[in-house]
Computed example of a mutant assay.
Amino acid sequence: MKYSKSILIIAAIVIILASTVYLYNGFLKEVYPPQNWNQKQIELFSHTMNNFSFTFSGDERDDNGNFSKMITNINSNYPNISFNINGGDLKSSPSELQNFKNEYLNPSKNAHFIKPILFVIGNHEIINDPTESKFQNIFGSPTYYNFTENNAYFIVVDNANGKQLNSTQLSWLKNQLNLSQNYKYRFVFMHIPLFSPQGEESGMKNNGTGGANDLNSLFDAENVTMLFTSHVHNYYTGIWGKTPYIISGGAGAPPENGHPPNHHYIVVNVSNQNVTYTYVPY
């Protein structure tokens, strides 16, 4: 009789554990897809291709379906890209990131992304959430990271708060730029531009190490191939010092300063010979 009770208890425990695993792998895993999204996406592409391409876009918030249209357009017209990079401001506030996660990042429901997509943190990801916890819970910590793709070095910076970089991130950035010298191309991504397209500072304060002018000098010295930013809801390109930049903030956010909507993304083709950048409206 004692053995029968022990067997029943063990059986009950096994059933409970099995049910827990089932719930996690089923319902819970659907509602809460894997964390560390960016790192998991990086692991999905080869990092060994001599020639490859990727897309860049930013500022989806309040997109009214424009973001879905953009992803559909990319999938249809550029199926051979290796990955996408998003410049930030997915939604208007951190509280809406859960909706974005459930809509776009849930593998059982998502049919949008046929290629990996990486995310840069934007200022709308940290409104009322200065610790960046909601973004980190989905996309990973730290919010700045790097990866390589054969002859190119990619550096993603977190300047979402519009202030000078803290000493930890600045030291990391300098080290990454130093390591990137072993690669033919160096691409840097951050949400807020060093300066506005009109030449005025856009969010980053020029008041010490890590400010706009200091970062510009650092990028110049390390021969950054291209600085990609978003934040401004339009498309601009130019050169700050010796550093060329692209501002692309047209993935769905409302137009600014009386400009008409300018929904677009950038296709970047990388080869051993050169890099080309194509503006694609949709």
Rank of each mutant, 00 (worst) to 15 (best):
M1V: 12
K2S: 09
K5A: 13
K5I: 14
K5F: 15
I7Y: 07
I7K: 07
L8T: 14
A11S: 15
V14S: 12
L17E: 05
S19Q: 04
T20M: 14
T20D: 11
T20S: 14
V21G: 07
V21E: 04
V21F: 08
Y24W: 11
N25E: 15
F27R: 10
F27Y: 14
L28M: 02
K29S: 14
V31W: 15
Y32M: 14
P33Y: 11
P34Q: 10
N38Q: 07
K40V: 02
Q41K: 03
Q41W: 05
E43L: 10
F45H: 06
F45R: 01
S46C: 02
T48N: 13
T48H: 11
M49Y: 04
T55D: 07
T55F: 03
D59Y: 13
D62I: 09
D62R: 04
D63F: 00
G65F: 03
F67P: 03
K69Y: 06
M70D: 04
I71M: 03
T72Q: 13
I74Q: 05
S76E: 13
Y78G: 00
G88S: 09
L90K: 03
K91T: 15
S92I: 05
S92D: 10
S93I: 15
S95D: 15
L97T: 09
K101D: 08
P107S: 09
S108Y: 09
K109T: 08
A111Y: 11
F113Y: 13
I114V: 08
P116G: 07
P116N: 08
I117C: 00
I117H: 03
P130C: 03
T131G: 04
E132G: 01
E132K: 15
S133P: 01
I138K: 07
F139A: 04
G140A: 01
T143F: 01
T143N: 11
Y145L: 03
Y145M: 06
N151A: 09
N159M: 11
A160R: 05
N161R: 10
K163V: 11
Q164N: 13
L170K: 10
S171F: 06
K174N: 13
Q176L: 02
N178E: 13
S180A: 14
Q181F: 05
Q181R: 15
Q181I: 08
K184A: 09
V188P: 07
V188A: 05
M190V: 02
H191E: 13
S196T: 00
Q198R: 06
G199S: 02
E200M: 11
S202T: 01
N206I: 07
N207H: 09
G208C: 08
T209Y: 00
T209F: 00
G210H: 10
G211L: 06
L218C: 09
F219N: 00
F219L: 02
F219A: 01
N223E: 06
T225N: 10
T225W: 11
T229L: 05
S230N: 08
Y236Q: 06
G238D: 06
G238F: 02
W240V: 02
W240Y: 13
G241Q: 11
P244F: 12
S248C: 04
S248N: 12
G250S: 06
A251G: 10
A253D: 09
P255A: 15
E256N: 12
N257T: 09
H259T: 14
P260H: 04
P260T: 12
I266Y: 01
V268K: 04
N274C: 01
N274A: 09
V275R: 08
V275F: 01
T276I: 04
P281N: 12
